[in-house]
Simulated scan of single mutants.
Amino acid sequence: MFNKDLNLNTVNFIKNEYLKDDIPWYLGYSGGKDSSAVLKLTFNAMLQIENHHKKIYILYCDTGVENPIVTNYVYHTFEKLSLENELHKLPFIFKILKPKIEDRFFVKVIGRGYPTPTNIFRWCTDKLRINPVSDFINKSGRSTILLGVRKSESEQRDRTISKHDSGNEYYLKQNNSKNKMIFSPIINHSLEEVWITLKSLELPKSIDYKKIREIYQDAESECGAIKTEKGKACGSSRFGCWTCTVVRQDKSVKNMILNGYNELNELYKFRNWIYEFRDNKNFRCRKRRNGIEGLGPFTIEARKIILNRLIKTETKSGFKLIEQEELTKIYELWDSDINNPKYFE
């Protein structure tokens, strides 16, 4: 059962944590339910403070291969949040971060020839998500990073929380950094409490509870926004990259297509195609880049095939899937390999 005082207590707690020092805050926002709940609670905490002595950066990392339905929602939400921030004279600064051009997904795969990620070679997370945020935050020295981390989400999440225990249940240690602490004001919230927080807090109006609920419902085969005796609460879906080949099947995109997002169909077909194409030995170099015999990068021919398929997918879907600067970098990398005597297909 939801504790009616939970939101009030959490808002007051965030306010007091904000006021206690001058260490800058960075809030990681994905558009999902947990980060949206943290942002709503923090927004309401700032409404209670008259003089804001430090900025709060709201960071969204656009990897370039996020589910475009979610990305479009985030961009639209950021525009509206900026207006609400100005209206209430709050200390938020909204930043959309992107990976370096050489680290973009299609530059790596089509330009450099990286095989798409697997559980064994999962090169994507650091380059696409972690590094852009870390590079931005590292400029400030000491920092507090607000995340929607919660206990009891999964056994793996609980192990991670335990591993980074700081002695304060709301704070976690950051990997390899003494200057950064992770602050999760909803660490003890249940899934149901997250949804009720989103529904019950009126401000900011820009965070649309109904829209978030709709996306989650459409991404899961069966769920209710708030748990009832006959259903389960939404929240098991992860809105990651539409190109993800770490998993065997992208169930969330598949379910969204079944629930009417037909524009995702071409992206879903491309993802399934490249999942199979990745392991075709005929399109992989016989040597790795370190010169050792073995399944190496995609051949130039394979990269051209992937690019042509991607451009067709872009045209059919109507989504912008690759930028001109990425194409320029891809052609540069092709020329580099073609003219490199140590490169063997």
Rank of each mutant, 00 (worst) to 15 (best):
S35L: 05
T160N: 10
K254M: 13
P91T: 01
A225Y: 11
L146K: 07
I338M: 07
N265F: 05
I212C: 01
C234H: 03
E192C: 12
N179W: 03
N131H: 13
T63E: 00
A45E: 06
L87C: 05
D337H: 12
G167P: 14
V11L: 06
S35I: 02
T118P: 10
N131M: 11
E79R: 13
F183D: 02
I161E: 02
G167H: 09
H76Q: 14
G318E: 01
L146Y: 00
E332K: 12
D250F: 02
R122F: 06
K173P: 09
Y209T: 02
L59K: 03
T245C: 04
K180R: 14
L267T: 06
I306H: 04
N308V: 08
L198M: 05
C234P: 07
C223D: 00
E155D: 12
F78Q: 01
D279N: 11
K304I: 15
Y57H: 14
S36H: 05
V109C: 10
N119F: 13
V246C: 01
W273F: 15
V65C: 04
R303L: 05
I161M: 06
F121V: 15
Y216L: 08
E202W: 02
P99H: 05
C234K: 04
D22C: 09
E86M: 13
E192R: 15
K251I: 15
T228A: 00
K287G: 00
P91R: 02
Y331C: 02
N290H: 04
E66R: 06
L90F: 11
H53F: 08
K269I: 15
